[in-house]
Amino acid sequence: MPHVDTDTPPDSLTVFAGFHRIAAGPRAEVIAQLRSRTDSQPLFVFDDTTGEPIDLDLRDDALPHATAPEPPTRTVGRPKLGVVAREVTLLPRHWDWLNRQPGGASVALRKLVEDARKVNAERDTVRASRETAYRFMSAIAGHLPDFEEASRALFAGEQVRFEGLVAGWPQDVKAHLARLSANAWVVA
């Protein structure tokens, strides 16, 4: 299955007022758009990467201010390479096997993880897209008709059925849901 690039930057947000999308884009731009609003309609802000609703503080004093950087702390691992030491619990036979591998346990584990990431990349992309779409639709459309059946269709990978079930939902909700679920469908 080809990966559909949804061009979602890591800090991208989408804001709804009721079922109408009123703002979308990078966090700073969304905050600026929302500060210029004069109405008091409740807003629902979603993280586009996770689909989760978030609280967004629009006060001027809520913005991060530049502060002096803290001195770096000495950590275990190879921080310059991005290596962070963590604990892994394995059975003795697993440690024995890892220690017999060329380069030792760390090299063997990194190779195993990289191989698994490559082999499972498509499945991980599909799963992540489904979970992101589900979080969004649960928060904004959980009470709409056919929500439960649409959720089942989403996780079953039944795109045509899913699209039919959400066809009667508000246009902006459907459009955002289509964007979030773009990678949720397995192409045979």
Rank of each mutant, 00 (worst) to 15 (best):
G82K: 01
G18R: 10
R74Y: 05
V187N: 06
F46P: 08
D60G: 09
P9V: 05
A141W: 13
E158I: 05
I31A: 03
P145L: 03
D96H: 14
A121I: 11
V15N: 06
V76M: 06
R59D: 07
D39I: 06
A141I: 11
D47I: 02
Q159D: 14
T73C: 00
F136M: 13
T73S: 00
H94W: 04
V166A: 02
P26W: 00
R37N: 09
R78Q: 09
A167M: 14
R78W: 02
I31S: 00
F46Y: 15
R93N: 15
P10Q: 14
H65S: 08
D11I: 01
K111E: 13
G77M: 06
E122T: 15
A167C: 13
A32Y: 04
P53W: 00
V84M: 04
L58P: 01
V84K: 12
A133P: 14
V107Y: 09
W185N: 04
V84Y: 00
D61Y: 01
L165M: 03
H65K: 10
D39V: 03
P26F: 02
V166I: 15
L144W: 13
R100Y: 12
A178K: 09
Q41N: 14
D124F: 07
Q101A: 11
G168V: 01
G164Q: 08
D124P: 00
L91C: 13
Q33T: 09
R78M: 11
E122P: 01
A188W: 00
R86S: 14
E131D: 15
H65L: 04
